[in-house]
Amino acid sequence: MRRTIRAMLLLSLLPALASAHHVLGRPSYSLNEDSNTPPSMQVETQIGKYFVTYMVFPAFPQPGKPGRINLYVKRLRDDHPFLGKVRFTIRDDSWLASDDAREELGVQEPVDNVFRQGFVISEPGDYLVIAEFEAEGEPYRIDFPLRIGNPSSMGPLGITLGVIIVLLIAVNLLQRRRLARLKTSEYHAREEA
């Protein structure tokens, strides 16, 4: 009986459950089995007076394949949706990349309070999508990471193996030299004796 009631209560909260595992500012993946929507990646964060929800379809976009960003911006104070324009730009997210090398994806107006921006990126890699808007005379800029294609699997493995091999060889060579020096000094000591 207790379980049935628990199940009923939980069922009534299903829509809320979907957001239960979202951590502010951290990507999470979700699947809504009741619709045809593919799995999506979602980030919830805030900037200044606004709460921002950012969704990417599909959850893992592939190079050369179309994808879509949905952005929803609402004012923290009264949950009023932002209805101005949002400019989407993209740049390489590597350490040495400059913010000047940005490419514009588009400027969007809201449809049903959601800013929708399509994209097709041919090169796999880590990118930064920058959403900018101006509200109440203040400029806002939010950076979202976007991974195109699968992250390099061999890279970390190769670097680790390379570092290990170099370290092992270096210590081996050092120790050989030290042993040879020791032997020579022992030999000289014996000679002198």
């Binding site: 502010l24 500012g25 951290r26 709460f51 800029r141």
Partner: peptide, 19 residues
């Protein structure tokens, strides 16, 4: 914790992953 993080982020102007 999320509520506190939101309030602090608003005060210090933090966004993104709120690191």
């Amino acid at each position: 914790w999320e509520d506190w993080a939101r309030q602090v982020a608003q005060v210090i102007g933090d966004s993104g992953q709120l690191l």
